[in-house]
Nucleic acid binder design. Sequence first.
DNA 1: ATTTAAGTTTACGTTAACGTCAACGTAAAT
DNA 2: ATTTACGTTGACGTTAACGTAAACTTAAAT
Lengths: 127, 127
Amino acid sequence: MTKNDTIYTISDLAQRFDITTRTIRFYESEGLLSPERAGQKRLYSPRDYTTLKLILRGKRLGWSLAESRELIQMYNPAQNNQAQYQKVLERVQESRERLQHQLNDIEVMMLELDEHEDQVRQAMQKT
Amino acid sequence: MTKNDTIYTISDLAQRFDITTRTIRFYESEGLLSPERAGQKRLYSPRDYTTLKLILRGKRLGWSLAESRELIQMYNPAQNNQAQYQKVLERVQESRERLQHQLNDIEVMMLELDEHEDQVRQAMQKT
DNA sequence: ATTTAAGTTTACGTTAACGTCAACGTAAAT
DNA sequence: ATTTACGTTGACGTTAACGTAAACTTAAAT
């Protein structure tokens, strides 16, 4: 078993991801994180670390915290019966479709940028 | 010259893009659109149409209206000197880099979804 | 002539995602 | 023993991106 028992404090994570501790606590209050406690203090595991990474990646793609929370819950091994598993697979598929749509949008945007760069360069020539 | 003189009303556009007229007026108030007028009434050109398409594409990628506005202004042929042109080219490059970053994020997300689907399918077998 | 339908401006309301104090606890360093 | 650094829980503030409602105009249809 490879058990990584690294532990992060809240300011550790804040520094590593360049966010504020307020943000991290907010994510917890929204049900996206659930760190251990040592008394009052929060202790974050490698799992929390990757969850945070997932959240921020989602943000860069315009996903809401609610959507990221769904993803996170989906990744949590809390299911047991076939119906539950089936639902997870459907959610996975939905996420994939959304990502695919975003891929298309990016492609179109890139093409438009290419076109426009050409136009600008041509206009520069005539000067 | 191929001059397309189609004209859209505000509710035309609202229907076609499945948004509200309020949204369209809001975008105008934020400087993203500037339709012609016939008295009080707004008249939208094919150019406005594509601008709206750009805005909504941006939204699906998590771009703010301010960012889309920059893109739109960039696409507007209002520059004349070399320095201005150069700035536009820099902006184009920045946009491309952001899109490239988003592409990477999507790829990672897709891989994670693939992995998780495998895990779920394996768990289903054991039932 | 007057409904009806679509449009307009103005203004206040709402939600998500935090920011910004304030007031306090705790543990290590001087 | 008391700074100093880091943490905690409220609680109110802020911004972006619209929603919603009111009060009014205008053109077309009955």
